[in-house]
């Protein structure tokens, strides 16, 4: 399916939002799932999280950070441009139920990914407390939208430019403490950099709080064909694309996930360099 861009916003800090017309994806999409796009004939297949979707309008909203070759190229597309291939929804939808009090943590672009989940959990009558964090205040995504939905929203920035000066995990610890004597917290959902999700798992494990993370493994086809996205859950090999992307955080081997994410790092910088060269953009002009 080809997707047509109908809205584009520069969110600052290399973050972009695009709204893409893909009725078939929009009508099937459920929180927790993702899409894969390919921009042109020579493009790679990149998995992206969906920040929002509108089945009535037939659109999905993608938020991404323009860091690598493909995401930078995606950021050059404008309203009216098309994305050659959009496929999805992929992966299993999140488990949505009436769990009670839930803390949702989003870090970096993970905030965009957790937003539809917060929506679904609120709709299912949960008491949702959100913690969102980024390097600096200008990188905080969807803060208003998330605050409007959540019973309570906490912010953390690495540089202290907004909210708690430090990590989302520190806020999590404080909140767990705070709610200890008032029925506690029934579930934690964390989406962000693997190190963050690993830290969250470490914090909730001693409290025996069910914790869900959404993994961002390297993917190719997204349909269970290649095994590139394999992760180890309680020692058992699982595929993020069809068994996930959400898993029980206490069972995920994060070391392997983090290590495997590095597999094409050198190639990725080579691709970016090549792209900037042919575009005639020098690195320092940005």
């Amino acid at each position: 399916m080809t997707g047509r861009i109908i809205v584009k916003k520069d969110l600052g800090g290399e973050n972009y939002l695009i709204e893409v017309t893909t009725p078939q994806i929009a009508s099937r999409f459920k929180a927790g799932q993702f899409v894969i796009i390919r921009m042109d004939e020579k493009g790679e297949r990149i998995p992206l999280t969906v920040a929002d979707y509108d089945s009535g309008k037939g659109t999905i909203t993608l938020i991404f950070q323009a860091v690598g070759k493909s995401t930078r190229q995606l950021a050059t597309l404008n309203v009216g441009d098309t994305i050659l291939d959009c496929v999805g929804p992929l992966g299993k939808p999140s488990e949505i139920g009436e769990f009670g009090r839930i803390i949702c943590l989003g870090g970096g672009t993970g905030i965009a990914c957790i937003y539809p989940l917060i929506k679904a959990l609120v709709n299912a009558k949960n008491e949702v407390i959100s913690i969102i964090g980024a390097r600096t205040a200008s990188l905080l995504l969807l803060e208003d939208e998330i605050s409007a939905l959540s019973l309570r929203t906490c912010v953390a920035t690495d540089d202290g430019s907004k909210g708690h000066h430090g990590f989302v995990t520190e806020v999590l610890m404080n909140l767990l403490d705070e709610y200890k004597n008032s029925d506690g917290v029934q579930r934690v959902v964390a989406i962000g950099p693997p190190v963050m999700m690993k830290a969250v798992a470490g914090i909730t494990r001693p409290h025996h709080i069910k914790t869900i993370v959404s993994l961002n493994s390297i993917m190719l086809d997204g349909t269970g064909m290649c095994g590139s996205c394999r992760v180890f859950i309680d020692g058992e090999m699982k595929l993020t694309c069809i068994d996930g992307p959400e898993f029980d955080a206490h069972k995920v081997n994060f070391e392997d996930l983090i290590s495997r994410l590095e597999m094409f790092k050198e190639k990725e910088s080579e691709a970016l360099k090549h792209y900037l060269n042919i575009k005639g953009v020098s690195k320092c002009s940005r």
Binding site: K42, G43, E44, S70, C226, K267, E268, E270, A271, H274
Partner: peptide, 19 residues
């Protein structure tokens, strides 16, 4: 899949890498 379908042998002309 990387080599054939995604033409990793033509990287970086094609985006998909292989190590």
């Amino acid at each position: 899949f990387r080599t054939n379908l995604m033409k990793a042998y033509k990287f970086p002309e094609y985006d998909t890498p292989i190590v």
